[in-house]
């Protein structure tokens, strides 16, 4: 178990850019777009009139309706994460067994007492568990930051973010749904991964 964890850790170190930096960049893009829209609105909109109206109209809807909007918004914002993640996993698996051979470092890895089965298991687990977890954690972080910014905006026009859009739905349901769909995806793709490792 210790060896397997060490090998997975090694996959993380080797692919830090793809596994960690890439989702951070996506999260950054979402936040940047949010801030940009706020600043543009603030610049054009006198006294944030349109924004106030939007908050008012939103407040008039039923909590159930607002909850559905939030829930679908979260699922929608996961699309970019999902798409990029599948590209990351595809290229990771494409190179996972080949790169060590290309730079001949396989001769070092094979000098360690870790069996080939364990090594392949570590790469498969990195693709199926480590990458989705990393993307999920950073996506959740992005959602939280965006909600904080949104809340500050609502509070700025004397609204109550808690009753307006936070308490109306359960974000864990959305995150759980996204995580479950990712896991289902990787299980569906598992035969492809195993076929490649032959």
């Amino acid at each position: 178990m210790k060896r397997l964890l060490a090998l997975i850790h090694r996959e993380y170190w080797e692919n830090k850019g793809a596994f960690r930096t890439t989702p951070l960049v996506i999260g950054g893009i979402y936040i940047a777009f949010l801030l940009m829209s706020i600043f543009t609105t603030a610049h054009i909109d006198s006294d944030l009139y349109t924004f106030k109206e939007a908050v008012r109209v939103m407040g008039e809807q039923s909590p159930d309706f607002r909850g559905r909007i939030m829930y679908n918004g979260m699922l929608g914002s996961s699309v970019l994460f999902t798409l990029v993640m599948s590209v990351v996993i595809f290229f990771y698996l494409l190179g996972a067994l080949y790169d060590d051979r290309k730079d001949r470092s396989i001769l070092f890895w094979k000098s360690l007492p870790a069996s080939d089965t364990l090594t392949i298991a570590s790469k498969l687990l990195a693709a199926m568990v480590l990458v989705p977890l990393s993307f999920l954690a950073i996506m959740i972080l992005t959602h939280v930051i965006m909600s904080i910014i949104g809340s500050l905006m609502v509070m700025g026009v004397d609204g109550n973010p808690w009753t307006l859009f936070i308490s109306v739905f359960n974000p864990f349901k959305a995150w759980g749904m996204i995580a479950a769909s990712w896991l289902a995806q990787s299980v569906w793709a598992l035969p492809l991964g195993l076929a490649r490792s032959r």
């Binding site: 060896r3 060490a6 090998l7 090694r10 730079d103 007492p113």
Partner: peptide, 16 residues
């Protein structure tokens, strides 16, 4: 491996 740092190399060797 060319990408690895010395401390990472020592860590992974120690674990395995």
């Amino acid at each position: 491996p060319r990408w690895i740092r010395v401390w990472q190399l020592i860590d992974v060797t120690e674990q395995i």
